[in-house]
Design a binder for these strands. Structure first.
Lengths: 133, 133
DNA sequence: CCTTGACCTTCCCGTGACTGGAAGCCCTAT
DNA sequence: ATAGGGCTTCCAGTCACGGGAAGGTCAAGG
């Protein structure tokens, strides 16, 4: 299977697949003409990677997950550990964004949004230290 | 004022301040010895930038906001527009993260996390189509 | 046989917003 | 005179790719 076909089936850009080879996530064979020749197993791995990335796992997390996926003697605790750490990061990020959202929504609501120069948003940015509750 | 002092007062690393000069957000004077010499106005701008960045505005947004801040003939509508667009991006990001969180939390809960290899997280990544509701 | 066009290859640069580090100048205190 | 701290510039790295150039390969059509 050439890269174009595998890209379609995995739902990933060819560029991304080459990149994944570069960083050692997959190791496709090569045909006589130098083209990459992907096996079914390569395709499975790429799909796996696509799904993991779409859940926000970092490439390094994906590397670990892939290794566990291929290790039939793994402990599910190791997988769960990676997922829990990632979940914690997601929660932290959500909290951070919601704090921003909170402040920003207040400011937007307070701003007249007309052709006059007075603007509570700029006023806040110019003075704010934190709590805009 | 040297960069170290202004960094303390603005709450930004010196590196960041040099970077902001590089990209044209500020233009501090230079002392005879080649050191940057920051005015009170420079400090105000840096604080403004720090606050805007902490609300998640991009550098380009900050550039626009700073220009409006300095333009006494601005229309508050222009400021509000930038803020609303940013707010929409934040909301989109939050929604994306919450979708990830939703799926991931389910998977984590379903995983035994013991020393056995069976793992619904890996099973999901290996097959997942999307909706893990 | 030749050409066309769609593939494929590698390589290098750019992204955003910095951060780290090297090499070297400046200033003050001892 | 030397030690230290702070300042300068410049280069490289981060993360996960994406864009695009230069060139090789393959199948189909004239």
């Amino acid at each position: 299977m050439n890269i174009g076909d595998v890209a379609k089936h995995a739902g990933l850009p060819a560029k991304t697949i080459r990149y994944y080879e570069d960083i050692g996530l997959i190791e496709p064979n090569r045909s006589a003409n130098g083209y990459r020749d992907f096996s079914d197993n390569d395709l499975h791995k790429l799909r796996f990677l696509g799904h993991a990335r779409s859940l926000g796992f970092s490439i390094e997390d994906c590397r670990g997950l892939l290794a566990l996926y291929e290790d039939k003697d793994r402990a599910s605790a190791d997988v769960k550990h990676i997922a829990e750490e990632h979940l914690a990061k997601i929660d932290a990020k959500i909290a951070e964004l919601q704090a921003m959202r909170h402040t920003l929504a207040h400011l937007v609501k307070a701003c007249a949004g007309d052709d006059r120069p007075d603007c509570p948003i700029l006023a806040d940015l110019a003075t704010a230290r934190s709590d805009t509750s």
